[in-house]
Simulated scan of single mutants.
Amino acid sequence: MTGGWMRAALLVLLTIGTSCAAGRREAWSGTESTPIPQRASQGAGEATISEQVSRVQPRGAAGPVVLVTIDGARWQEIFGGTDTELSNHPRRLPSDLVPHIASMAKERGAAVGAPGKGTMAATGPNFVSLPGYTELLTGRAPVGCQDNDCDATRTRTLLDEVHGAGGKVAAFASWERLERAATVRTGRFVVSCGRHGDDSIEPWPGEGDFRPDRYTAKIALEYLESERPDILFLGLGEPDEYAHKGDYDGYLSSLAYADSVVGRVFDTLERMGARGAQTTVMVTADHGRARDFANHGGFAPESARVWFVAAGPSITARGHVASASERHLADVAPTLRLLLGLSRDRSLLAGRPMDELFASSM
């Protein structure tokens, strides 16, 4: 399910053995103060879609971004609602199951990867979380990171770039290992992934240092409202945890909770006045699921498929949009670079901005 050009480049670099390097693991406790740097300004670099795609410029100036990921959330529920083959309960449509995401996908904004409109996929070839997040945040195929045990990324992430441009950045995630995909060097901006050994927090439905989504969402939303970052990343993890247990009802409940968090993001932005109105919200997943629902990975190419929804002042609100070619998680960071006024990454493995989000017609 991956595109030929990216697959070919990936295989070449995998052959020469490119690898990730280890990084320190530090995180925000939720209590320390963080200096407020200057806002990232519109840079002198490219601010329009690349020459290889149609020249479409997003409406409005660069503004803040909130990027939410829902670990292991299938496109089937996002676009089709409850899977009646997995549930004994009456079918729920997306508007009932995930009303806020459904509104973004059909009315408030635009969606990529909907059935009949082209596909969006993780590049792989192993469709698991850490490679997916690495691809998502670097805008490149995850060469050298093909499992959940790889070291911290050596490639500057979008979060690193925004911080380097003078923007205020924060990353929060329920899964502790996501920290390895967030930045090449921790300690420069707020990164809070997992429960940090806090025994007062029960990790269920996760294990180890997993922090339940309700705790992660709480501190992320509080930070969004009080600190007003230029980019906030929020990684929710419970849907994948329940799915691995084969608990479809738990998966649906956690997916509905994740959707409610998206709703709370919009509520928070409404309270922020003009700044909130200038903010773009994007929601996606790191990978899909195998046909057996409980699993995912390279053995199940169908688990590559993901989805993407966005809403904001620069996004043309026109529902499910068509993609001329297969999209990848690597295309998310270039799209965000475009919105934030950052220069385009021209490396061989770099993704392309999703110009279909900004076009005024199909």
Rank of each mutant, 00 (worst) to 15 (best):
P131A: 07
F189E: 00
F358R: 03
R91A: 14
S174K: 14
G167L: 12
G80H: 05
R271M: 06
V283M: 12
S50Q: 11
T155Q: 10
E77Y: 07
V112D: 02
P115Q: 06
G164S: 08
A27W: 00
R264C: 02
Y215G: 09
K168S: 13
V162E: 11
L136E: 12
A256T: 04
A256D: 03
D83V: 04
R211Q: 10
D209H: 14
H320A: 08
A170W: 11
T155N: 13
I315G: 08
P205Y: 03
D83Y: 03
V184M: 15
G273E: 09
G187A: 13
R55S: 09
Y248V: 04
A330L: 14
E161R: 15
F210N: 11
D199Y: 00
R25T: 08
P212G: 02
Y242K: 12
L97R: 15
E107I: 07
M6W: 05
G187F: 06
D147L: 06
T48Q: 11
E326N: 11
D151H: 06
R59L: 06
Y133M: 08
V56I: 14
P353C: 11
S200L: 04
N148G: 01
V309K: 11
R55L: 08
R39F: 00
G197P: 05
A294P: 01
Q76I: 04
R195T: 01
A47I: 11
H89D: 11
R156A: 11
T31M: 05
A317R: 15
E176V: 10
D286V: 00
A243L: 01
V128C: 09
